[in-house]
Simulated scan of single mutants.
Amino acid sequence: MPVNPFLDPKLVHGDLYRSSGRLAERTRALREAKIAGRDAADVIVDLVAQRTPPGAVVLDIGCGRGTTTLRISTRLRPRRLIAVDASTALLATVRTRLAEASGTGSTICADFHHLPLPDALADAAVAAFCLYHSPTPAAAVAEIARCLRPGGIAVLATKSLDSYTELDQLVQTADLDPDAACRPSLYESFHSRNLVDIAATHLTVLNVLHEEHVFEFADATHLARYLATTPKYRIRAAGGPTGLAAILRERLPAPPYLTRSTVSYALAARP
């Protein structure tokens, strides 16, 4: 079985998040392709707002480029907002985005299995689209629970095991990666089906939402922009996204190219 790149420490702490550019381009390509599904950051902030009092202390664990961090800052105006990520490059992007939006918040570079934060610090915590980077996501949930005050809430977000699998067949049909269809899901350690069980190891699950997102890549160039940034495949193509697009145009049926993902959210509380 091929190694899952989202669980490979060398990749996670190396090429995937050494800079923010790759993640930004992947996110941009998906956002432009989306034709159905609510904005995930809006859903997360809505869930936090349901159970979090004014003047709260909020943690954004595995904050990435800070899209949810920024939304928390501008909509909830917490008394204290702490964004945590293991990538210094991504945290630099978070600080820039907060400053440009006149938002407030601090950043900490840390592994979410070992948060350098005191017990019972926070009223709310978010861990969005990050726990699938852990081979032991329950251990990260335990750390999040430790940092919450009794009754404090957490919003955990992830994707389904079969997210974007339609692209596997396209990549294989184009002979860009002959093993595309048998590569493991990027989300295999923490996904829509095991979300509740893992959350419940240290938290009380209050509510779960599952929403289908649908994406339509308009042409080969658009699809190539996404495929060039995803670590799932071992694509054999020279010339970057431009060369990849040329191969896709030659070998695939006419566009558009559709794919789907289930996005799942658990709202949970520290007992």
Rank of each mutant, 00 (worst) to 15 (best):
R71K: 15
S192P: 01
P241C: 01
T221W: 12
I44Y: 08
A29T: 06
A269Q: 15
K232V: 05
T229I: 08
H191A: 04
S261W: 00
Y233V: 06
T204G: 05
G239H: 06
R249D: 15
V48W: 08
A140T: 09
Y132P: 00
A220N: 02
A139P: 00
P150R: 13
E32T: 11
H133T: 10
Y187L: 14
L186F: 08
S102R: 15
A127E: 02
R26Q: 15
R97Y: 03
R80D: 14
N4E: 03
D162K: 09
L203V: 06
A122V: 05
P78C: 06
A142I: 03
R28Q: 10
V126S: 03
A181E: 11
L91C: 10
D162G: 08
F217P: 07
G66F: 07
G37K: 11
V84E: 05
T173L: 14
H210W: 06
R149M: 09
A238M: 09
A49D: 13
L167K: 02
T201F: 04
V208I: 14
L117M: 13
I72W: 08
P118A: 09
Y17E: 08
V126Y: 04
R270S: 06
G152L: 07
D15T: 12
D85V: 03
V263C: 13
C130N: 05
P2A: 13
D168F: 02
L131F: 04
I108E: 01
Q50W: 07
A101Y: 01
L76R: 03
R71Q: 13
F129D: 08
L98A: 02
A49H: 12
H13R: 13
S102M: 12
T229W: 02
Y226C: 04
K159D: 01
A200C: 07
A269F: 01
V171T: 05
R234E: 15
A157C: 12
A220F: 06
C182G: 09
V48C: 09
E166R: 01
A33R: 04
P5I: 07
P150F: 14
H213S: 08
D168K: 02
L186A: 11
